[in-house]
Every structure is written in C-alpha cells, then in structure tokens.
Design a protein around this nucleic acid. Sequence first.
DNA 1: TTTATATTACTGACGCGTCAGTTATTTGTA
DNA 2: TACAAATAACTGACGCGTCAGTAATATAAA
Lengths: 225, 225
Amino acid sequence: MSSELSAQEPRWRRLPEERPGQILSAALAVFGERGLAAARLDDIAKRAGLSKGTIYLYFPNKEELFREVVRHTVISQLEEGERMVSEKTTSATATLTEFMQRYWAFIRSSQFAPIFRLIHAEIHNFPDLARFYGEEVVARGHRLVSGIIARGIASGEFRQMDPAVAARMLSAPFVMHGLWCTHRECFTSVAKKSDEQVLDELMQFYLYAIRPCDANQRACGTVTP
Amino acid sequence: MSSELSAQEPRWRRLPEERPGQILSAALAVFGERGLAAARLDDIAKRAGLSKGTIYLYFPNKEELFREVVRHTVISQLEEGERMVSEKTTSATATLTEFMQRYWAFIRSSQFAPIFRLIHAEIHNFPDLARFYGEEVVARGHRLVSGIIARGIASGEFRQMDPAVAARMLSAPFVMHGLWCTHRECFTSVAKKSDEQVLDELMQFYLYAIRPCDANQRACGTVTP
DNA sequence: TTTATATTACTGACGCGTCAGTTATTTGTA
DNA sequence: TACAAATAACTGACGCGTCAGTAATATAAA
C-alpha cells in the first residue's frame, strides 16, 4: 500500500550512534515550544524521525530525557563559550566588543530562547537544573565578563566600578533583547529593528555606560565597594 | 463523625461576588508554579478553598481561565501603573528616580515573576495574550519611560540619545534582575545582595549611562537617529 | 541464525469537564 | 417572628479522552 515497487529501501536504519543526538535536538524543539508537561513523546519521536518506543531505548523516562536535554544543550553551549574565551590579548575594549558580538550571536541562536524558557518554566520542579544553569552558565559567564572589565578598569579604558555589577549589567539587556527579538511579532518595541541594529544599540549604550567620565581618566562614577 | 459539637459553622459560604477573584489569584499561584499544562484544577480549587465544580460556574474551561488570569493580572498592574504616572512635574532625573523605585517594587512583587514565566512559556500556544502583553504592557511601559527620557534630554539633564532605545535599556536589566532575584538560590550572582542593593546598582549604572558626558552639556555619545 | 535495534499495539493512570445531588440563603406565607 | 418553599451556590464522584510507559512483534545487520 505504501511503496509501489520500492527497491527495498529499508524502512528504517540502525543508527545507534546518532540516535541520542537526534532525540535530544527534537526534544529541545518540542519542549521549547510546548513546555515539559504538554510535550508529547510521540511528537518528539515523529520530529526525530522514529517511533516513541525507540526513545525508551536511550532514555529511561520523560523527566530524565528533559534533564538530559537541558544538560546537553547547556554544556555544548559552555564548550563553545570556552573556545571563544581562549583568545588573543588585545585591548579590553576590543576584547569586550568581540565578546558582545559573539554573545549576541549565541543569544540569537535557535538554542538559547527555548532553554531559557524551559529553565524558568520548570525552575520549581527542577531546582537542581536551575542551580546548575545559574552557576555553570550565568555566573560563569558573568565571571568571564568581569575579567575583561577588570582588565579595562586597570588599563584605564573603563571607569572605576564593581566588575561583577558591570557583568550583570551587560548580560541582562542582552538576554532580554534576545527574548524580545525571538518574538518580534509580540514585542513591538523591537519589531522593526534588525538583529544588527539591536546589537549596535546594546553595544553603544553599554560602552558609553562604562567609559571613564573624562578623557584624562579619574574615578568619577560612584564606586560600589 | 466530623464535627464534635460544632455550633453549625457552615461548611461553605455563598460568596458569588468574591469567587472570581479568589479563583483567579489561586490560579495565578498554581499556574505560576506548575505551568499551564501541569497545573491541576483540583489544586487551584483547593487553594481557593472550594471545589473544582465551582470553578466551572465562573469559567468555561481551563484555557479560558488561564487567559483570564493573565488578562486580569496584567490589567490590574496596568491600572496601578497609570496611577503612578499621573504625578508631579519635577526634574526628569527626580521623576525617573521615583519611577525606577516603583518599577523595581512592581517587578519584585509576587505577581510579576509568574506572569512573566507564563507568558513566555505559553507564547506559542497563546500568541494573542503575548501580543496583548507585548503591546499593552511592555511597549506601553517603554513609551512611558521614553517620555521621561525625552524630557530630560530636552532639559539637558540627560545626554543626546534615542529615547526609545534608552527605555529598553532601562527595562531590560530591571526585568532580568527581577527574575534573578526571585530565584536567588539558583543565581549566585545576586545571591548575597539585598533587593535594595540591587536597585541601587541598577539606578547608579543607568543614571551614569544616560548622563551628559561633560558638565557643560554638549552632545557627545553616538546618536541613533 | 542470532542479536541488537526499531516498530506497533497495548495498558493503566491521571485529570478535565459534567451533572445529579446537597447545602446555604432568600423569599413568600401564616 | 417562625417556618416552608423556592432558588442560587456549591460539591464531589464519575465518564471519557489522552498520553507515559511496556510488551509483543518485526526487521536490519553481523
């Protein structure tokens, strides 16, 4: 009924190496759209091009699959971040500029928004994952930025300030603008802006916010000890 | 069997005026914790101190209850915001400072985080609600800030810049820090900070970011047309 | 032929929504 | 004021659909 003459294309192939990855990325997509509870394993299976039973060959249950989706995605992002870090030692401003460009690209990638949504949606039910994310991703990212900022302060490129605070003040608008841009149809504030424009606005605003107040560098902004 | 001597305390009272509000606030709490799909109507009923059937006397189904929760909460917040706006006409800086204090209080209230979570979690399933939120709350808030900023630019209190951009750059870090502070146990970056400290950091950073570059006011930051 | 891999068909728990029945309150009547 | 009768508000058990998870079966590879 299905295939007319079908030169015996096998109905399916054994791909035990690739399955976990296929399942995880399909699951990320479906979880990201529907949320954990409303996501159906049948939909994940269909999206991954296999059947529901197969998922249970690789993951013990839905909850553990969810955990693995988050861990896997977050960790792969971390590793990508690591690569970004081990870089040249130009001026702090140049380093920061490049960091912001890459950070924005990461935030606008297809992985960021769903993971953000999932973690915040399930923060009560999976406090361990949220903790892991908060420490291994958010705090870690903040520490990375902190380092650049501290270097810039020392060199006189940036004004005197708490680098940890400065890191949060960079991260926060990037993340929020990422969310807004992911749903431009809802958030009219960024509806007519391109990603490049938004990045530009973010960079200009931030660089102004951390620059020394006068050319010949003396501490002026209030310093948080 | 149940009540020993019980001077016939009635098992329940007829409160048709108050029921919708009770149900809505219980629903906000449960939806906020569990998400739409995982929330049980029995739990909402229990929390509101009544039975599941009663909910269906006031709301046609779970989905419509959800819509009403979002609309009701968002609108009541809007009205509170309106009241805040119709205020004195002091300097733009003073107005902005007071706005930031109230904005932070609102973001740290018990209503903000669950609503934010719900809207972002269900953005695919309830695009109408998300749109409503994006336009009637986010964009509207941004317009409000825009106005203050524009006034400050005109008076020379703030540097030359696009007020719409400035509004987003205020909103974004406030919202993100609100989320982080709501889950301090996960986000170590703000774990040891009090709400007041965080607000202080936000205000100082932002006010520095929008102040004119030199005392005798000339445009200096790059201006986005 | 054997085994690992995958599919299909099935089961059982769970929760939404319903509605027959119960309880509080109001209204009519003495 | 007392006490039915009528009505409005509310309850909770149950039907029914929907999946998560499992068992039985099929197919590819070795």
